[in-house]
Computed example of a mutant assay.
Amino acid sequence: MACAVRSGGHSYAGWSTGTGLVIDVSPMDAVRRDGGRAVVGAGTRLIDLYGELASAGVSVPSGSCPTVGVAGLTLGGGLGVTSRAYGLSCDALESVRLVTADGRILNCNREENADLFWACRGGGGGNFGVAVSFTYRTHEAGDVTPFSLRWPWARAAAVVRGWQRWAPAAPDEVWTSLHLDTGPGTGTPTIEVIGVALADAGAHMDRLTAAIGADPDSSDARSRPFLDAMKFLGGCAGQTVEQCHAQGSLPGQRPGGNFPRTDYAGKSHLAYKPLPDDAISTLFARFEQGNDVANRSALMDAMGGAIARVGPGETAFPHRKGLFCVQYLAPDTGWLRATHASMEPYMRGTAYVNYVDPDLRDWAGAYYGPNLGRLRKVKAAHDPGRLFRFPQAL
């Protein structure tokens, strides 16, 4: 019988459930500080991770969606809003407790079960066993400054060109994401850069504007406590930690939850080189065609900084030299597939395993690159019978 492992339940392909045995670790959501470390249950949602650590003025580098589970995020690498400053979620990981296919409970770190520890830092969730606990190094988390800049669509090409020259090499203390969107109720495309600066954002906003060569139509920046900033970026500003959950009584939900469930699919690429002009034009055409269609997005998250100072083989996450990660989102899978296909010639054969994509043909090479062979050896050593299997399992 196949086993599906469930934490946050955010698998785009729905592989955190199945017709066999579903092992749901969601109730394992305790967060405990231990000096400069945090011991975190595998069912913890990001909003609870941030909320529990906020009173101590510390955090762990993670993502922005409040309902995402820390386990899946970390096991796939863990790109997030402080990754350029502090590394991926898996870079802050010091140990993981794993239940293997033969029922053993293993502590995995640099000294014990080092092969599994390496594989659990970017090798994808559900491949090697059931992670039940993570121990992370924490970093200080004081006030930070979320900011945004918006330009008219007529300036969009200049914005992409300037942003992709500046963002991956910007100071580590600033992270940015370039958003192409057609918002709810409209098919009109928009362009915006959002970001987080660990200190004052003004100088970074000025340098980005200079790189683009055009002043934004509007901009905004406001210093906030770290937890408030994560709520703001996650779409639940001004709400309590409980309200930043989905409503319900199931594990991971809260009776007073107010975070909406959305319905869309996603695909991804990793850009190792700046997009040439014809790639930018190709992407824009996907947003300009069928302008009556809403809720389409391409999100370009800057990499570089601390991410790139770890070698591609030091952890299982291979895309250390990527300039930025592109995530395509839409409820319309036809538009999504056509958009991804149109950009494939420019970012050939790369994808982020946490944005799992059931359509990929060479998914293993796209997710794991040169680390694939070593990952398959770890899989064979610890799950030779492939108890943990799903359509894209190793």
Results as ranks from 00 to 15, higher is better:
V5Y: 06
R6E: 09
S7T: 07
H10F: 08
S11C: 15
Y12F: 15
G14Y: 08
S16K: 01
V22H: 03
I23Y: 07
D29Q: 13
D29Y: 00
D29V: 01
R33F: 00
V40T: 13
T44I: 09
I47W: 01
A54F: 02
V60Y: 05
T67K: 02
V68H: 04
L75I: 01
G76S: 13
G78M: 06
L79Y: 14
G80E: 11
G87M: 06
L93S: 01
T100M: 07
T100F: 04
R110Y: 00
E111S: 14
N113W: 02
G124H: 02
G124K: 01
A131R: 09
A131V: 15
F134M: 07
T135E: 15
V144M: 07
R155F: 00
G162K: 05
P168F: 02
V174G: 07
V174E: 10
G185P: 08
L208W: 01
L208P: 03
D215G: 08
P216H: 06
S219K: 11
S223K: 12
F232R: 11
G234S: 12
G235D: 07
Q239R: 15
T240I: 08
T240E: 11
Q243M: 10
Q243G: 13
A246P: 00
L250K: 13
G256N: 14
F259M: 13
A265W: 08
H269L: 14
H269S: 09
A271R: 01
K273A: 15
P276M: 05
A294L: 00
N295T: 06
A298H: 04
I307A: 05
G311I: 00
G313R: 14
E314K: 06
T315N: 10
H319Q: 04
H319V: 03
Y328R: 02
L329H: 03
A341G: 13
M343F: 06
E344F: 00
Y346I: 03
R348M: 02
A351K: 05
Y352L: 05
Y355N: 11
Y355D: 12
R361K: 14
A366K: 05
G369L: 02
N371A: 07
N371L: 04
K377G: 08
V378N: 07
A381N: 10
L387P: 07
F388A: 09
F388G: 12
Q392W: 04
